[in-house]
Design a protein around this nucleic acid. Sequence first.
DNA 1: TGCGACAACATTGTTAGACAAGTATGCATC
DNA 2: GATGCATACTTGTCTAACAATGTTGTCGCA
Lengths: 238, 238
Amino acid sequence: MLSQSAPAVTEKRPAPLRTTSVPEAVYEALRESIVSIAEPPGAVFTETAIASRYGVARPTAKAALERLVAEGLLARRAHHSAQVPELSRHDIDDLYGNRAILEEEAMRHLALEGVVPVAALARHRELLENVRSDDRAALARADIDFHRALVLGQSSPRLAKMHGLLMGEIELCIGQVQSHQLIRPTDVAEQHQGILDAIAAGDAALAGRLTREHIFTARDRLLSKFDADHTVDRPEAP
Amino acid sequence: MLSQSAPAVTEKRPAPLRTTSVPEAVYEALRESIVSIAEPPGAVFTETAIASRYGVARPTAKAALERLVAEGLLARRAHHSAQVPELSRHDIDDLYGNRAILEEEAMRHLALEGVVPVAALARHRELLENVRSDDRAALARADIDFHRALVLGQSSPRLAKMHGLLMGEIELCIGQVQSHQLIRPTDVAEQHQGILDAIAAGDAALAGRLTREHIFTARDRLLSKFDADHTVDRPEAP
DNA sequence: TGCGACAACATTGTTAGACAAGTATGCATC
DNA sequence: GATGCATACTTGTCTAACAATGTTGTCGCA
């Protein structure tokens, strides 16, 4: 019941065949170093520095930077170097609020179609296998990949596009607020299982509600950590 | 009650001061010619052609094209010229379904804040003044500008960003399916007034419901026109 | 006539280098 | 100590060129 889509379907799309152009590769590398906070908030990226770091021409570096700026992973004013933005409390709230809206809708779609994307199942299994691992960052990534796979599996390309836009900043957010130190992987896995079951059962309302609650739980965890981190440094806060 | 924000607020943001760079100008010009279907679906845009048409360098034209591709206003495969995409029935459905979700949420935000953005009021007045005009295209634009102003007026920047992404394709959609020939401007104005009233009254549920219905009405009008246009040419359709 | 290989062309991908324009920084002056 | 200027840095834009890829048309051949 979990996969009404026949195996033939996965056969018909043999491979997305991700061909990688040079700007694409630079973009990926930069993106990775940003969301992993190898480059901390405030780090500056000049076009020439990126160009020489990766051995490409400046226009190529420029293209990669502009793409990151468009996604919100970098901020820059005219004639200034790009910088990794520091997300505020309001940003976290905004990010997760919109994420909840989008994913709730995506899960409702999936439930109405009654199809659980095979890619999401694979990601779920990955997370289950690593649930006893101590690599919290890897678990956070598995969590994100699971959600991405689910949204990618529903039928609205625009919904997936908008979700992808948000998830970039969400990853940055998770990196900056290292809240996955506190999270219990078993809880996450359980909630994921609940969502999958609701989708498979075709219960759109339940799938939507569970998704919303799951995301709000994550949001609240991040906000708590954020507040804790920011009241220590500022004893004069009310 | 309509504007709880003091005049001082508009004073604090003296002007967005829209400075226009060269690629920006090319982008705007191309975008306009696309959504106004001066360039019909299928029209090809080569980088060199754009560059010589506007008297700019090819990299400049390239940047403008890439931006349009990212927004879905142009489609292109690697090593091929960009083309204006032809939206399918499914695209229209997808576009308006997602638009409804986003705008419903935006109106709920506004209603909860109890603030009607002054820009939206101005747009509404514009539409009312031209309600007897025969310039249907201008009315369609006023309609879009009204919705844009409302969403821009609420407090979530990401919601506005995602909405902007959709609205580009929505404009293209409206251009390709010339359905505003059939629309009654007074109906549109009335529905807008209803939404504004609900927001001012702080009734989030009502504002959301009216918005959703308003958008679905528009969608159904487009779909009807689309079907009519496409069954004429294909008598063998079921 | 029909079909396949090959060659020429068109288009994008990427680079290099250069100059202009804008911004910030530091220094000298008052 | 505040102001104004000069300098350095960074981005904005252009010209030119070559490489890689996809398309098209032609030619020869069966």
